[in-house]
Nucleic acid binder design. Structure first.
Lengths: 226, 226
DNA sequence: GTAGTATTCAATAGACTACTTGACTACTGT
DNA sequence: ACAGTAGTCAAGTAGTCTATTGAATACTAC
C-alpha cells in the first residue's frame, strides 16, 4: 500500500484528473466554455466578445484543447473551436451548480446585480415545453443570429435582443412571449422581456438557456430557418 | 453589452465559478476529495495515507474549505473533515468521467498498471444489486474498518484487505464473493479477488466503489454492525 | 500547571500561470 | 507575387500556487 510503485501510479492518475480541473480553474476559460456551449465560434469572435487580446484567447483555447475539452477545425482564414462533446458542458454546469449551492458570495453578487429580476418570475423548462406543445406561447431566441443558426429550441424564432425594437411590429400584441438566451446569467432575455413589457406584451424569460435545454434532451432544431 | 459595469459583473461571476475549478486543479486535492467521499477523516490520517506533510495537508484542506467543498468539526484533539454535500462527489465524478472519455494518456496509464485486471471481469452495480437481493453472493467491503463504519453497501461484511488472509477460514468455500473498495482505481478489491481465487473461492470485484454506489441511491447501511 | 499531540499559522523559495508584445505562418483575393 | 487578415508561437514579466519549515494555538491527560 505504501509501496513507491503504487504511489507513483496514483500521482500520475490524479495528475491526469487535475488536467481537467486546471482547465476549469480560470474564469476566462470557464467563460469561453460557456460561449462555446452555444455553438462553435472563431477565435477572433470569442476574443472580441470577451474583451481579451487575440493571443491571450488563443492561448486559453489551447489550454482547453490540451485538457481535451475543445477541438478546432480550420476553414479558410478562420479557426472554429467547439466543445468536444456535450459532457463538457455537463461538467461546467456541475461546477456552476455547486457554486450556486454553496458560495455565499456568488449569491450576494447575483442579488446585487439582478435585484430587479426577482419580480419577473422566470419560466422553467418543463413549463415551457408544455405550453409550447399547446401552442400557447411564442418562443423568442434573443441570442445573436449565428448562435440561433447553430441550434435553437424547436419552434423558436430568432430575434436578437439588439434588433427587438425594430421588429416589435412583427410581434402581435395578443400573444404571450417567452424569451431565452445563453443561460441563467445572460441578460439578453431579461432585456427582451423588459422591452416587450414596455410595449404592452405579456412576456417572461426562460430561467435556463439553450445549452441547458439541449442538455436536458428537449427538442431542438438546427439550420437556416428564420 | 460592452459596458464596463456589466463586464465587471461577468468577471466577478466567473471568478466565483473558478473558485470551484481552482479547488479541483490540484492532484492532491482531488485525491483528498476522493478519500473524504468514503467518510469523514482527520487531517492526520489523511496526511499519513497520502504521504504528505501535516501542514501541507491542512493547507490543501483549507483551500477546499474556501471553495466550500469541505467542512470540518473539532472533536477533542482531532479535526474531522467531510464533504459538505454529496454534490461535491458528483463534480469529482464528472471530472473523472470526462478524463476517462477523452484523455488518451489516462487510458494508457491505466492499461499499463492494470494490464492483468482486464481478465477479472468486474461486476456492475445493477448486477450486484440483483444478485444481492437474490442472496446469491457475499459482499465484501475491503476498505479499512473506519470507512466501513462510516457507511457501506447494505449487507456487506467488513474484511479489510490486510486482514483477509487470516479471516479466510470464516469464508465458506461454496459461496460466491463480490469485493468492493473505494472506487474504480482502488486496488483493494483487486487484491482481495486475487487472494480469494488463490484459495479456491469464486470471486469478482465490483467495478465501482462505495461512493458511486451511494451516489446512485442504492441501499447503504451505516453504523457498528460487523 | 506541565507535557504531549493535532492542527493551524506565517514566512519563504521555487515552480507555474496569465497576459503582453512582436515575430511568424497560413490562407484569401487581387 | 503581393497585401491583408486570422491565428499561433516565443519570450518576458508580474503575479500566484505549492511545499517546507518552524513557531503558535488548542486540547487532553496527568
Amino acid at each position: 500500500m505504501a509501496d513507491a510503485h503504487h504511489r507513483e501510479f496514483k500521482n500520475r492518475l490524479y495528475a491526469q484528473f487535475a488536467r481537467i480541473g486546471k482547465a476549469l480553474s480560470s474564469p476566462h476559460r470557464l467563460e469561453l466554455l460557456e460561449l462555446l456551449a452555444q455553438g462553435e465560434r472563431t477565435v477572433d469572435s470569442l476574443a472580441t466578445e470577451m474583451g481579451l487580446s487575440l493571443a491571450n484567447t488563443s492561448q486559453h483555447l489551447q489550454a482547453l484543447r490540451q485538457a481535451a475539452l475543445v477541438e478546432s477545425r480550420k476553414q479558410g482564414l478562420y479557426v472554429y473551436y467547439r466543445l468536444v462533446e456535450p459532457a463538457v458542458f455537463d461538467v461546467c454546469r456541475a461546477v456552476r451548480t455547486l457554486a450556486e449551492h454553496r458560495l455565499a458570495e456568488l449569491d450576494r453578487l447575483v442579488r446585487e446585480h439582478f435585484g430587479e429580476r426577482a419580480s419577473i418570475e422566470p419560466v422553467r423548462m418543463e413549463q415551457l415545453l408544455e405550453r409550447a406543445r399547446a401552442a400557447e406561447v411564442v418562443i423568442l431566441d434573443t441570442r445573436p443570429v449565428s448562435e440561433y443558426a447553430a441550434g435553437h429550441i424547436a419552434g423558436a424564432i430568432s430575434v436578437p435582443v439588439d434588433d427587438l425594437q425594430q421588429r416589435l411590429r412583427q410581434l402581435p400584441r395578443n400573444k404571450e412571449y417567452v424569451a431565452y438566451c445563453r443561460g441563467p446569467y445572460c441578460v439578453y432575455a431579461d432585456r427582451a422581456v423588459e422591452i416587450l413589457r414596455g410595449k404592452g406584451r405579456r412576456a417572461r424569460r426562460l430561467l435556463e438557456g439553450f445549452p441547458e435545454w439541449k442538455a436536458a434532451g428537449l427538442p431542438v432544431e438546427t439550420g437556416a430557418e428564420v
